[in-house]
């Protein structure tokens, strides 16, 4: 890879100053960024290491749980507060990557990770995300892992994260700092659909950084489930994954949260299915109906048509697990 400069940041303010200059990238766990550099996808002039900043904390707030951007995926997944209040997040984290990667990867880095579309990774192949205007290699290529929701004529890549699917389902907020100060963004609004700008993964401006996420308290802890369907039992990206949080009272669903991974350019929240389930009894039949509602607008390509069957099956299965029917 190209030679680059390396500096250690001493404050978020220092990071913001550093990234205001072009060619500068933030490095935290480096589990994705370093791959990009090795593959020649990016060649930054300078890396700002933020690992030393005090942004690792996992702390309760008045109405939720705050997780610092530098909290390690492995640490979050085993944290007592997370396990008690938001077990869905722990389940999703443990379904992701490998123990070695989770020991390095941070929450902020996980949110910022880019698609694993193989056309994006191979600089010889066309890819509008990597190099706008070159075309989409996957559209008529090997698109088994690709999107069935929200794709555009420019890009059919999917977001690879498991953690983000849980955070989307849990109504998390992303806490962002920039020159204009701190702001909050609903997690479901953070990532973008590809539209005409697949090179942009999310709405974080170039001169902003993530400080952490906050998950509002909820009643889903007892009835949460993360189902990941994949080609092997660990260290494989999702063919389809489903995050479910149910607020159950007796057999009745007071409210439901559902999101899918492996199906879109962003964690795919299933609002229609949630609406349908609210007030219904937890039965397999209702789950199947919710799953069908969730599939509206789905569109498949040559190699991923199986997802049209797999996704509703996975939604139903995840709901069964969450509600204790399985």
């Amino acid at each position: 890879m190209k030679q680059f400069q390396y500096t250690k940041a001493t404050s978020p303010q220092g990071v913001l100053e550093a990234i205001s200059k072009p060619g500068t990238k933030i490095i935290a766990g480096g589990t994705n960024l370093v791959d990009h550099m090795k593959h020649g996808l990016i060649a930054p002039d300078k890396l700002v290491d933020i690992n030393h900043l005090p942004l690792k904390g996992i702390t309760p707030t008045k109405s939720g749980l705050h997780i610092g951007t530098l909290a390690l995926n492995s640490v979050v997944s085993e944290n007592a507060l997370v396990l008690q209040k938001q077990p869905l997040l722990s389940m999703a984290l443990k379904a992701g990557a490998s123990p070695q990667l989770r020991n390095m990867a941070t929450v902020g880095g996980n949110i910022m990770q880019r698609t694993r579309c193989t056309y994006f990774y191979d600089t010889i192949m066309p890819c509008n995300k990597r190099e706008p205007g070159t075309g989409c290699g996957a559209m008529e290529g090997y698109n088994r892992m690709h999107a069935i929701f929200g794709a555009s004529g420019q890009c059919i890549a999917v977001h690879p994260s498991d953690m983000c699917v849980a955070l989307a389902a849990l109504d998390a907020q992303v806490i962002i700092t920039g020159k204009k100060g701190e702001k909050r963004m609903p997690f479901t609004d953070f990532h973008r659909l590809p539209d005409d700008h697949p090179e942009l993964d999310n709405h974080l401006a170039k001169d902003e950084m993530i400080l952490g996420v906050e998950i509002p308290d909820n009643n889903f802890a007892k009835n949460s489930y993360y189902l990941k369907v994949r080609d092997r039992q660990s260290y494989a990206f999702a063919l389809v994954s489903v995050a479910v949080g149910l607020d159950l009272s007796g057999g009745t669903i007071r409210s439901a949260r559902l999101a899918m991974g492996g199906v879109a350019h962003k964690p795919w929240r299933l609002f229609e299915a949630e609406k349908f389930l609210a007030g219904k009894t937890a039965t397999e039949d209702n789950f199947k109906q919710a799953a069908q509602l969730a599939m509206q607008g789905a569109k498949a390509y040559e190699y991923n048509a199986f997802k049209l069957k797999l996704a509703p099956a996975a939604i139903t299965e995840a709901l069964k697990h969450a509600s204790g029917i399985v």
Partner: peptide, 20 residues
Amino acid sequence: RYGRLVNNDFANYHVPIQAD
């Protein structure tokens, strides 16, 4: 179309891992 491998790494070419 290109005659080129699209999964020539350990993330995409799956070999069994312990859990399998």
